[in-house]
Design a protein around this nucleic acid. Structure first.
Length: 342
DNA sequence: CATCCACCGGAAATGTTGGGAC
DNA sequence: GTCCCAACATTTCCGGTGGATG
C-alpha cells in the first residue's frame, strides 16, 4: 500500500512543463541561444538547483536545424568515452570500441561541418577531474565555422576554472550563467507542486512539507526523500514520519548516487562514516578503508588512488573536505560527511 | 636555520582490457 | 589463436607545502 498516485513527477528524470523560480536563468539561456552563432555557456551552481533540468528543458525547445547531444560526464569521464558518445549521438549508429581517439575526432569533424550542433556536458567536473581539459581543448579548436555550441554544466566552479587551461578558456569564451541555492520557501513550492501531481490528495501534511523544505536545499535529495517516504507508508505523511524515514532515505540516496561507481567508492564512503568525531584526516580514513577491505575480501587500492576517489565523493556532494597546505596539520585533507546528509 | 609533520598530486611506470589484422 | 596497439586503471615515485619545534 502506498500513497503514490502517479510515479512520474517524483522521479529524478522527470522534466516538468514549467520550472519554478528559474525564470531569469532560463531567459538568459534562451537569449544566448538566439544569437547567430551558437554560444558557449558555463552553467554553474550548487547541486540540486535545477541546472540539469534547465538544460534538459532547453534542448527540447531548440530550433529544428540544431542537433543536440547530451553527455553525462559521470559516465563519460574521458575524452575518448565522451567522443564515442558524441559520435553515436551524431550518427545514430553504435560506435564500435576499436577507434582511436584521433580517428574518432576526424569522423566527428566531418559530421559537424554543415549542421549546427549543441553539446551539453553535464557534470563536467568529473571529466575535468579525471581527464583534464583535453576534450574541451579539442572542441574549442574544431569550432572554426562557429556552428558548434557547448554548454558546460558544473557544480564546482572554482575547481572547474582551475582545471581548464587559459588558452582553452579564452578560445571558448563561455558565457557564465549561475543558479543560486533555493530558499526553503522555493523548495517548499517545488516539492508541493510535485506532491500535488503525484500523491493522493491530503496524504501530505502542510507542516511535514515545511519541515522537509527546511531540512534540504538540494531539491534532488528532497524529492528522493519524499518519494521514499510516500512509497513506504500508507498513513498520511507528517513531520514525524519524515523524521523516521530520514536516515534510510538519505542512505538510499547515497547508495543510488554511488551505484554507478566501484565497490571501492562504496567501501571508502562506508569507512568515512565510521568515525564519531569529524573532521578526520585522510590518513586515518585510508587506514579504516583498508580494514573494511579486509573484512570484505577486497584488495585495497593504493592511497594515491583513494585520494582521487575522495575527490569523486566530494564532487557528488557526499563529503566536505578542507585541504591544509602545511602548518601544524602538515599538508593533508580533512574530511567530514556532508552536513546535508545527516 | 634545519627538520619535521602527513599527506598532496603531477608524472612516469606498470597492469589490464578488448578490438583489429593476420 | 596470437600478436599488436590504444585506452584505461592503478601503482610507483617523488618533489612539494609552511608553520611549529628544537
Amino acid at each position: 500500500m502506498s500513497l503514490v498516485d502517479n510515479q512520474r513527477p517524483l522521479q529524478p528524470e522527470y522534466v516538468p512543463g514549467s520550472i519554478t523560480d528559474r525564470e531569469s536563468e532560463r531567459k538568459a539561456l534562451k537569449q544566448a541561444l538566439n544569437s547567430i552563432h551558437l554560444p558557449n555557456i558555463l552553467l554553474h551552481g550548487p547541486r540540486g538547483t535545477g541546472k540539469t533540468l534547465l538544460t534538459r528543458q532547453l534542448i527540447t525547445q531548440l530550433e529544428d536545424d540544431i542537433q543536440h547531444h547530451y553527455i553525462d560526464c559521470i559516465h563519460h569521464n574521458t575524452e575518448h568515452k565522451a567522443l564515442r558518445k558524441l559520435h553515436t549521438s551524431i550518427t545514430g549508429e553504435d560506435t564500435p570500441q576499436g577507434f582511436h581517439t584521433s580517428k574518432l575526432q576526424r569522423k566527428i569533424e566531418k559530421q559537424l561541418k554543415h549542421v549546427r550542433h549543441l553539446i551539453v556536458l553535464d557534470e563536467a567536473d568529473f571529466l575535468l577531474q579525471n581527464n583534464g581539459n583535453s576534450l574541451l581543448y579539442y572542441l574549442s579548436r574544431i569550432n572554426k565555422p562557429a556552428n558548434l555550441g557547448i554548454i558546460i554544466v558544473s557544480a564546482h566552479t572554482a575547481s572547474l576554472q582551475s582545471q581548464i587551461d587559459e588558452r582553452t578558456y579564452s578560445t571558448l569564451q563561455p558565457r557564465r550563467i549561475g543558479t543560486e541555492p533555493y530558499t526553503s520557501e522555493q523548495v517548499y513550492q517545488i516539492l508541493s507542486e510535485r506532491a500535488r501531481q503525484s500523491l493522493e490528495p491530503t496524504s501530505l501534511h502542510h507542516e511535514a512539507l515545511t519541515y522537509l523544505a527546511s531540512a534540504t536545499e538540494n531539491t534532488k535529495l528532497g524529492l528522493h526523500w519524499l518519494r521514499h517516504t510516500a512509497q513506504n507508508t500508507s498513513q498520511p505523511i507528517s513531520e514525524e514520519t519524515l523524521k523516521q524515514t530520514q536516515k534510510q532515505a538519505h542512505h538510499r540516496f547515497t547508495e543510488r548516487t554511488l551505484s554507478h561507481h566501484t565497490d571501492h567508492h562504496r567501501t571508502l564512503y562506508k569507512a568515512i562514516q565510521d568515525f564519531d568525531d569529524y573532521p578526520v584526516n585522510s590518513g586515518q580514513i585510508y587506514t579504516t578503508y583498508r580494514e573494511h577491505c579486509r573484512k570484505r575480501d577486497l584488495k585495497p587500492l593504493s592511497n594515491r588512488r583513494i585520494s582521487d576517489y575522495i575527490q569523486h565523493l566530494k564532487l557528488h556532494g557526499l563529503i566536505e573536505t578542507k585541504t591544509y597546505y602545511g602548518g601544524k596539520h602538515g599538508k593533508t585533507t580533512q574530511i567530514q560527511p556532508s552536513s546535508l546528509l545527516q
